[in-house]
Every structure is written in structure tokens, then in C-alpha cells.
Design a binder for these strands. Sequence first.
DNA 1: AAGTCGGGGGA
DNA 2: TCCCCAGACTT
Length: 351
Amino acid sequence: MIPREIVQPLLGWFYENKRDLPWRREPSAYHVWLSEIMLQQTRVEAVKEYYSRFLDALPEIEDLAACPETRLLKLWEGLGYYNRVRNMQKAARTVVEHYGGALPPDYEQLLELPGIGSYTAGAVASIAFGIPRPAVDGNVLRVIARITENEEDILKQSVKTKTERELAEIMPKNAPGDFNQSLMELGALVCIPNGMAKCGACPLAELCLARKHDRVMELPKKAGKKQRRLEKRTVLLIQDGEDFAIRKREKKGLLAGMYEFPNLEGYKSQEEILEYVRELSCQPVRIQTLTQAKHIFSHVEWEMKGYRVLIEPREKRNTDGLLFVNKKETKGKYPIPAAFAAYRKYLEEDI
DNA sequence: AAGTCGGGGGA
DNA sequence: TCCCCAGACTT
């Protein structure tokens, strides 16, 4: 069980130590929602700039609902997990249609919106609306596992469910948002992963069972992660004068809807590359080897070999799924993910 | 319950 | 290198 005695020390600590974060300035439901979506599996420092830029571009939920997809993905470019922003737009359209443009102040209704799971629903409900619901993220699971000296694998759904149920029991009805944030803030600043915990600065040190038994180092437990698969790819910079070929990725799957340079699975010979370029209705003139590059995703790792292929000027410009974009005009227009950073620079710089 | 989905920063 | 991050969704 989680002791109720954690509540007041946590709140007191939070009011003294909470960070001044952009989304804490004007915590409207939209602002809290956006910050929570951006912060999913993403560090605070990485989110700050994106958050401000996003709200400058789309200050209201209606703006988000009406935004073209490419512009939306461009605003998210580099943050990763691009389904987050696609789901958020779907939800925004639902909010405009069914809720008059304002998020519903109700946990169950929030939970029904795409991209909002139990954590985000709890965070928005408690922080924006003062509704007493827990918001259990990785920080909270770690903090609670240590306080209670829980041996179970915190990645198990059952642990999360139990944590939510027990936190709901002790949730202070007058400050649910602050209480949820205090747990997360403690996890982010003091009760840090691995062997880095700063127990000397912890307001819960005296009642923490892991510390009492000197087991903070070994908790929480997490099941082993499986190995990433390696994928070799051949990336092509097909160049017609100052124009480069890009194309849009599939609507589903990895990097859905983002733009990329034409590329092939596996390492291809120069003959195979030229053949492929011809299939795209291009007439290759010269081929040049570029640098190798690697990009690591969560579950797959790309090892890429790049080639620049100069082609004859094309009559029919944008066919065969290719989009020829001018190096000067395309600046900031097409969302091209970081996986292509090593080759993207040819589009952005004079090389 | 397991797999998919990004990217970066720090040890 | 590996780990982890204010997770959600699909299978």
C-alpha cells in the first residue's frame, strides 16, 4: 500500500521546488493537453522549443483542427512518434465537432479521444480541471516502486493499474493536479533512475522502504528489452540541377506521412541503383557515392549507404511518386525526419 | 502480453 | 554502447 503520509510532504516540496515550465504559465486545457502529448516518452528540455513554436502557429484547438497535415508534421519534425500529433488533430476535430471546441472536463470522455490514454487523461483532468484522478507515468511508477519497495516489473500493466488504484485512494481532493505533478517532479529531479537518486534531498526519505533497506539502487525492476533488428538501406539523392527528388511515406507505419529521399531495402550495387532510377522515369547521368550513415529507432536500426544520382532534366516533373523540390524554395516546407539527417543536409546546404 | 512507434542526452 | 524519457495503440 502507498502510505497517505506522502501527500503533504510531496505538496510542500513541490511548491518549493517546482520548475518554471512554459506549460505551467497558462495551464488551459489545450495547453496542458499539448504539453502532455509532447512529453510522452520525451524529455522536458526537448519539448520546450517545440511547445512554444507549436502554440505560436496553432494558438487554439480550432487552429489545430484545421491545420494541413504537412504543416502539422513539420511542426513536429524531430520530436518523433508522429502518430501523437496525427491523433491529436483527430481528437481536436472531435472536440470542435462534439464539444464546441473545448476539451470535456471529464476523465472518461477525455479517455475516449485518440491519443489520450490513462496517463494523459489523468494529467489533463487533474491539472487543467482539478478532477481527482491519478496520472501514472514512468516517473510515478519508479517513485512508488521505491517508496513501497515493490519487486514487480513496473512495465507490467498490473503494476500500473494497482498504482493508479492506490493513488486514487490518497489523492487530495483540493490539489489533485499539484499532487500528480509533485510525484512526477520528484521522479524527474530527485528520485532519478538507476543509481542516481538524490535521497538526501527527498521529502519522502524517512518513509521510503527502498531507502530504509538500502535498495534504491536495485529498484524499480524492469524486464529485459529485446534486441533491435538491423536493416540495411540504400538512400538516393536524385538530383536534377538544383532540384532533389523526395517522396511521401505511407500513411501507416514507421515515420508515417513524413517525406524521405527515395531509398531501397538492402545495399544495392550501382547497377541496381541505376536500374531503379530508370524505373522512376529518370535518366541517370552520373552516380556518386556519399557517406554511410546510421540511425537508431526504438526497435529497428538503419544502416544506410547513400548515393547521389545526377539525371537528365525531366519533362514531367512530379510523377512516379517523386516530388522534385528546389533546394532554395523547399526550406522549412517538407517534414523530413532525423533518420535522413546525414543526407538532408545536401538539400539544405551547398555541398 | 507483446510489438510498434523517434529522437536525443547522459552515463 | 546502453538506458531512459510526463505513453498510446495495435495485434
